[in-house]
């Protein structure tokens, strides 16, 4: 854990932010990621594009890096696991390939449905929300009252927060004591730029922003304050 803690940053209630864009609770081996958009290239290909589809391998590679650092018991996929119906077609679907691979790593998977997920096969169990360690995990495109469900807070995806700066895009987490917004785990998602978009700045929730690079997570303070900083 000592070597890991150098690159991970602790958020509320012993949830840790990783440079890969995953949320980890090391105490019980829970890993939460959102917005994988599996089958993104396949979806483009169905519309006529002529591409190499390699995002599945890329996602597996990043997850494997995390699995090697810590013993993960449960992997929660917090919505938009797939890009479209294209991820559910074929004899062995892209989603099957991914889930089988996670199973091979001896990790249990819980899948939350997002606005992109339209499972056609009953073999894939998508839930509207799950509760882990008294935190409500849902995708974020629908509203839930986590207090009514006796939870301490909620974890969502959906927004793909990033910081864009001089041609670079850094994944970002947003956190408050009762809410964590995850970045997209997919490298294909364009992202909502926290430096130019007002959506979170206008929020009444006092979000803190955590930006990720290849091997570090850095706290950028309150999102409402970023633009008024000396160098902003």
């Amino acid at each position: 854990m000592d070597s890991i803690s150098e690159s991970w940053k602790q958020g509320p209630d012993r949830w840790f932010f990783t440079p890969e864009g995953a949320l980890i609770r090391p105490d019980d081996g829970t890993l939460v990621i959102a917005d994988l958009h599996l089958g993104y290239e396949a979806t483009r290909a169905r519309a006529g594009d002529f591409l190499p589809d390699r995002s599945l391998k890329e996602i597996q590679h990043r997850l494997l890096g995390l699995f090697q650092k810590i013993k993960v018991q449960n992997l929660v996929l917090a919505g938009d696991v797939t890009e479209s119906q294209a991820a559910f077609t074929g004899r062995i679907t892209i989603l099957d390939q991914f889930l089988n691979w996670v199973g091979d790593q001896n990790v249990e998977t819980l899948i939350v449905a997002g606005n992109h997920d339209r499972p056609s096969s009953p073999s894939h169990t998508f839930q509207d929300q799950v509760v882990m360690d008294a935190w409500l995990i849902h995708h974020g495109h629908k509203k839930y009252n986590f207090r009514e469900l006796a939870c301490k807070g909620e974890i969502i995806g959906h927004w793909h927060p990033v910081i864009k700066w001089q041609g670079r895009t850094f994944r970002a987490f947003l956190s408050s004591p009762e809410r964590i917004v995850l970045p997209a785990f997919s490298g294909d998602a364009a992202g909502l730029d926290l430096l130019s978009s007002n959506i979170f700045q206008k929020s009444s929730i006092p979000y803190e922003c955590w930006a990720c690079s290849d091997s570090s997570v850095i706290n950028f303070g309150k999102i409402q304050d970023i633009r008024s900083l000396p160098g902003g």
Binding site: Q10, W165, G167, R168, S213, D214, S215, N219, P230
Partner: peptide, 28 residues
Amino acid sequence: AEPIQFESADDALMHLHQRLFSVPERVI
């Protein structure tokens, strides 16, 4: 202006942080 990149992603993020805060990163 067009960005011309010579830094690693880690360094670029750190420099952005330094530029915004002009102080070392806060210790939580």
